[in-house]
Amino acid sequence: MTPTDPRHLIGGYVTGTLNKTELDYLLRCALEDQALYDELMDQEPIRRQLNDREYRRELISHLSERLEREPLPVLERLRRFLHKPYVRPVLSVAFTVALLLAVRQGLVRPDTPAIQVVLGPAGAPALSVMGLFETREGEPARLREVIDELPRRNAGATILLDRTGATPSYRSGDKMRLGFTVAEDAAAMLIEARADGTVVRLFPNRLQPEARVNKAQQILIPPAGQGDISVDGPAGRRTLRLLLFPSGVDPLDPSHSWASLRTQATVTEMTYEVTP
């Protein structure tokens, strides 16, 4: 195999370590390229000296001894260590995990630029895994109660999906972005009921902990800059329910019973399909 750039072979020509194919290729190129020929001829005196076997042996011995005596500088050692094929992936994973743990522990806010830069748009699934959609104590039972609430249309509240149709369809693993808008200031809660009976709260979540939303504001889940959600979990029909409460009510406050909250809520519903 001959490289495309013959200049890469000049070093080997000087030390006489090219094979015949490489040497033929280099010299043929040099005959057609004056600059390359000039460069080769400039190196010719050194090449001739290195062709002297005795001198070459002496030089190898001299350089070997000197390099043995002289330890590698610290920065060079570090550079070589970082270049090892396994080091960078391991360091990247370790750093990302540390960052995710820091977010989970509340040491770093998830909306800081550092997080957005490190995790990037593809970071949302990782954050999702680490608990983007949190679950509070006693919440599953309460959400099951919420999902049974009959829809009561709220003019102006709309659930948005990034796919169209009466029942948008996603395949497992597809990227998905959803959101909603409200006509009036309100406290919102978006939940999803899945085919296997589980109910997940999508909003508020770890990245968007505030339930309060302003009128005409479009809420994206996850928020802009955090990428998309990856569709996972059981296949089948899923129901999204947007519950709107008067502004100032905290629907996540466990001290308020659902019985008292439900009378104040309006519910908007939308379904979509997940196929395997």
Binding site: G12, V14, T17, R56, L59, I60, L63, L67, E70, E76
Partner: peptide, 14 residues
């Protein structure tokens, strides 16, 4: 040092 090492490796036929 880097050049010397490179030079040595080339002389050794690598």
């Amino acid at each position: 040092r880097r050049c010397r090492e490179l030079f040595l490796l080339k002389l050794q036929g690598y």
